[in-house]
Simulated assay, not measured.
Amino acid sequence: MIRAILRRGGLRGRTRTLPAPVPAGGLVAEVVGARIALGRRPVLDGAGLAVRAGEVLALVGPNGAGKSTLLGVLAGDLVPDAGEVRIGDRPVGAWTAPELALCRAVLPQAAALSFPFPVADVVRMGRAPWAGTDREDEDEAAVAEAMAAAEVTEFAARPFLALSGGERARVALARVLAQRTGLLLLDEPTAALDLRHQELVLRLCRERAAAGAAVVVVLHDLGLAAAHADRVAIVHGGRVAADGPPSEVLDEELLGRVYRQPVEVFPHPRTGVPLVVPKRTVPGA
């Protein structure tokens, strides 16, 4: 049914610019000096970010820091009041909406659907941008591969609305994976997931980066960011306060100031990956 709707939608025959592959380490997208206000409150205040192929970039920071807004600007879904946003070699506004959907896939915080589509059809929606292109022939393989990767194949025929919150989150991730773009933008993809599936999502992020994609993921769990991200960008007060490898960015003084909570940072005894825990007083000490 979804396939028939997409074909009737008139995408076939349109001329669209297909994104060119970007070599590892190459610039995929960039935000420079972005400023945006919601109402009278500045949410981004000169934020800048570079996204490179083959990397997982984690955006972390306290609530209200501007992480999701920065991701929306990077996706082209929010237009900043000032600053520049580029995807590939063009300003984001120079891409048409169908072309932009070939460049980047976006996973929002909430996966909302009003109709009881089967899970397989929801995932198949991720293939909509490729209708009428040479890569349309990949649709069935892309959907099957994405569902298997997100571990949702077993409920392919179930209505999306009958799923739990965590199951819906994994189906939404499968839709993004099926889109097969070179830039993945994921907003808190682990928020509704149990421990196993949190690790699954971040492993999938690493696999996509290893295959050449650029992955930007908003996370609240600093441990996940440290373990899986190549770079961590700390967003604070509408700006990127620090950007670099986890071992350099996850600093006790900086994190304590940004989160207004003293923390301790020490290396994992086996892997050496930074562990971040709140500094607590010992009862009776």
Rank of each mutant, 00 (worst) to 15 (best):
A65H: 05
G72K: 13
L71V: 07
V51A: 07
P62V: 06
I87S: 03
Q109H: 08
L113G: 03
V73T: 09
G66W: 08
A82V: 09
E84Q: 13
V85M: 05
V56S: 02
P62C: 04
V79Q: 13
R104C: 13
P98Y: 11
A110C: 00
L78Q: 10
D89K: 12
G72N: 13
G76H: 10
C103Y: 07
G66I: 08
I87Q: 13
P91D: 11
I87Y: 07
P116L: 14
R86Y: 01
L107N: 05
L107Y: 06
P108F: 00
F115H: 14
A112Y: 14
E84S: 12
G54A: 08
V92Q: 05
G76W: 10
A94V: 00
P116D: 15
A112E: 15
C103E: 15
A75M: 12
V85S: 05
A101Q: 05
A105M: 14
P91R: 15
G88S: 12
R104F: 08
R86S: 06
C103I: 02
L78Y: 11
L57H: 03
A58V: 12
P80Q: 14
R86V: 01
P91A: 12
L102E: 03
F115R: 14
Q109D: 02
V106S: 04
L107A: 07
G72M: 06
A65L: 07
V85D: 06
S114Y: 15
V106M: 03
L107I: 07
V106R: 01
T96P: 04
P98V: 10
G76M: 09
S114W: 15
V79W: 12
P98T: 09
A111Y: 02
T96V: 10
L71E: 05
A94F: 06
